[in-house]
Amino acid sequence: MRMKLGEFLKEVGDGEAVLVEYSPLSHPELTFYSIVSWAKDTGRPVLIVDILDTLHVFKEQLRFMGYDTSFVDELPVVKEEGRVEEGRILGRTKVVEDLDIHLVSYGRIVKPFFDEVGDREVVVIVLGASKFLIPIQENPWLLERYFEKVVRAAMAKKGRISILFANVDLLNKYALQSWEESATRILRINKAGNVLHIKKSPRFSEIGMEVEV
């Protein structure tokens, strides 16, 4: 049984964290494009967290497929490392082991954005989430602090949903399973990038279903 991506997304509740898993050979940029389009159509503001130029990679893959990528130019972006600037850059922060420093820097950057959007539900899309974990995934203590301070804390914040794209082949078993435990929903992209498999959902009837991009 299949559903459209918009049908799946409209059921995602306030404060949820959706993990989108993909492999190096699949096409996650198609899902990214569809999520941004859905948010625009439903009047939800989008905030992009771009880790190590992943947004640029997604944009170029879409361009090679013949998509109009001009929409990227207007996306508000928090740049975490990387050199290629895409979208409307709100500020830059570094991937550092001290998560408190990182969160303070990130908070200062996004505060004006959230003040401006007010009470509207924001779709926060994190691109390259797995790359953030690579430097710390061999350290269980630092990894646990990441999920405590970043992932679980975000789930407690109302007025936003988080969608995190992760190349799971970059993660070790402990890091991947920690992600899967913390996420409220998990989608796995097929190789062609046009179908997602629901691996986890608070709506048990959805588990095992497919989602069309």
Rank of each mutant, 00 (worst) to 15 (best):
A175Y: 04
L52M: 13
I163C: 01
T54R: 13
A156C: 05
V95C: 11
D53P: 07
W38L: 07
E138Y: 13
A166P: 08
V122M: 02
V12M: 13
S182F: 08
K158I: 03
V150G: 02
A156I: 08
V46H: 05
R88Y: 11
G128M: 05
L47V: 03
L52A: 13
G82S: 07
L143Q: 04
G107H: 04
A183N: 10
K131I: 11
D98S: 14
W38T: 01
R88A: 14
R185N: 08
K59V: 08
I101A: 14
R92D: 02
E181Y: 14
K191G: 00
L103M: 15
V213Y: 07
V95S: 15
I89C: 08
I101G: 01
E148Q: 15
L55E: 07
P24S: 11
P112T: 06
H102D: 03
L176M: 09
L103W: 08
I136W: 10
I109F: 09
L187S: 08
P135Y: 07
I109A: 09
S182Q: 04
I189E: 06
V124C: 01
G118R: 05
R145P: 00
A166K: 02
E21R: 12
K131M: 07
E81W: 08
Y33K: 11
I189W: 11
D73I: 00
K158Y: 04
V211Y: 02
P24E: 10
V195Q: 05
V104W: 06
K111R: 15
N172K: 02
N194Y: 12
L52S: 14
E206P: 00
E85P: 00
N172Y: 05
E121A: 05
E148A: 14
D115K: 12
S23M: 03
G107Y: 08
A129D: 01
L176N: 07
E81F: 07
G66F: 04
G208W: 09
M1I: 09
K199F: 01
R145Q: 15
E181H: 11
V126A: 12
H56M: 03
S130R: 01
E21L: 13
L164C: 07
L176G: 06
A183R: 07
Q137V: 05
I125E: 02
E11Y: 11
G43R: 02
R203F: 15
I134K: 14
E116H: 07
L187T: 04
V96Q: 13
L25E: 13
G193K: 01
P28Y: 11
F64G: 00
V57L: 14
M1P: 12
G43T: 07
K149I: 10
E80T: 08
T31G: 09
N139W: 08
V168P: 04
V18C: 06
D53R: 05
F8C: 05
L164Q: 09
I189L: 13
R83F: 13
E210P: 00
F71N: 06
A154E: 12
F132E: 12
E212T: 05
L196K: 10
E181G: 03
S182W: 03
A175I: 02
E11T: 11
M65N: 01
E144W: 08
D115Q: 10
N167A: 02
E212K: 06
E138Q: 13
K200Q: 06
Y106Q: 03
V126R: 13
G128S: 08
F204D: 13
L170V: 00
